[in-house]
């Protein structure tokens, strides 16, 4: 390990460091990187051919209506996953709270007050989750599990578990019923959110830090970054996504109840992971989450059309999460070895 003849060494080492030969092709990598495009296409084609009623305009609108709120939640939660903090379970409580506040407060006061209050609540969720995880270094699954129970508990306690109905004629109602071709307005909101958050993730300083933090916490901290704010920010975006998801959900049904968002946590997670965002952090994209949402929604729709109930849908989504993460983990193992 001496460098007594460094100059000679430099001269005699023209291309020795060019060991960047392309990696060998491995099916597992292809599956992890590109699989979702093929699977989604195949799924849609198969459904269109074999499932009665899938290709109808009414059904497609229905798929969009159901996909939009989950998708909006998922694109927001993508930030938490990319920051290597697993997921934000508390979106279940957040979506329901936003929906109830939107309809309940609009009925009592007006929509502006409802939205303002929702925003305050969303920021509070983001702050509590973010501080617990980013400052106290607590495990995100356990933290968001407890905030889910606290949040849902508060909501049910304060509302007494009652269902809120919006008036037959209102801004909210007309938002929920307006369509552009087969597209409900909520789909437009989803696409807008996805484009916006995609820009945030890829173009802004903050999004960059989220990716960097997810890829390597220590290196990000040692670059002089205030990493606590990065984590808080990621949970804030997740909270705002959940809030808007709640609004859209409430507008679609024009009713709100504390139990309406059951399953949003894992459907969103499934969409994110199936889209190709890695639970190991650092890698992922909002646009791919959008693709994941399409996949998960179409799959759910096929099951509904085939008469498979809630239980089967849950089984499918659980299996989907485990499979997608397994592919990710195996691809990662193959790369590291």
């Amino acid at each position: 390990m001496t460098d007594t003849s460094t100059k000679v060494a430099v001269a005699s080492q023209p291309a020795a460091q060019l060991d960047l030969s392309e990696r060998d092709f491995r099916p597992i990598d292809w599956l992890a990187q590109r699989g979702i495009f093929v699977f989604t296409t195949v799924l849609i084609l198969v459904a269109a051919v074999f499932i009665d009623g899938f290709a109808s305009l009414a059904n497609i609108t229905d798929v969009f209506n159901r996909a939009a709120p989950i998708g909006i939640v998922a694109v927001g939660m993508t930030f938490v996953v990319i920051s290597a903090n697993y997921l934000d379970l508390s979106v279940v409580a957040q979506v329901a709270t936003a929906a109830v506040v939107l309809i309940g407060v609009s009925n009592e006061y007006n929509i502006v007050a409802a939205m303002a209050l929702s925003l305050v609540i969303a920021l509070t969720y983001g702050l509590i989750n973010g501080v617990a995880v980013g400052v106290f270094d607590a495990n995100a699954v356990i933290v968001t599990l407890s905030t889910t129970f606290i949040g849902l508990g508060l909501l049910r306690w304060l509302t007494g578990g009652s269902i809120y109905f919006g008036p037959p004629e209102s801004l909210i109602r007309s938002f929920g019923t307006t369509k552009i071709g087969p597209f409900p307005l909520s789909m437009l909101v989803l696409i807008l959110m996805a484009v916006l958050l995609s820009l945030v993730l890829t173009r802004t300083n903050f999004g960059f830090l989220v990716r960097s933090y997810g890829s390597n916490r220590a290196a990000t901290r040692l670059a002089g970054v205030n990493t606590a704010w990065v984590v808080i920010g990621a949970f804030m975006i997740s909270a705002i996504g959940a809030m808007i998801g709640g609004f859209v959900l409430a507008a679609f049904s024009n009713t709100a109840v504390s139990s309406m968002s059951t399953g949003f946590d894992f459907e969103a997670l499934a969409a994110i992971i199936v889209g190709g965002t890695s639970v190991f952090g650092g890698r992922g994209s909002v646009m791919r989450t959008l693709l994941g949402v399409v996949f998960v929604s179409v799959l759910t729709n096929i099951m509904v059309l085939s008469g498979l109930g809630f239980g089967y849908q849950q089984m499918a989504i659980g299996a989907l999460i485990v499979t997608a993460v397994s592919i990710d983990a195996l691809a990662r193992k193959a790369t590291l070895s």
Partner: peptide, 21 residues
């Protein structure tokens, strides 16, 4: 080689569905 948080979370949903079915 999946993190147990995620593996058992997936299992949580899968089994909940199984119970319903």
């Amino acid at each position: 080689g999946i993190n147990s948080f995620i593996a058992t979370l997936g299992m949580l949903f899968f089994l909940r569905g199984s119970a319903f079915v």
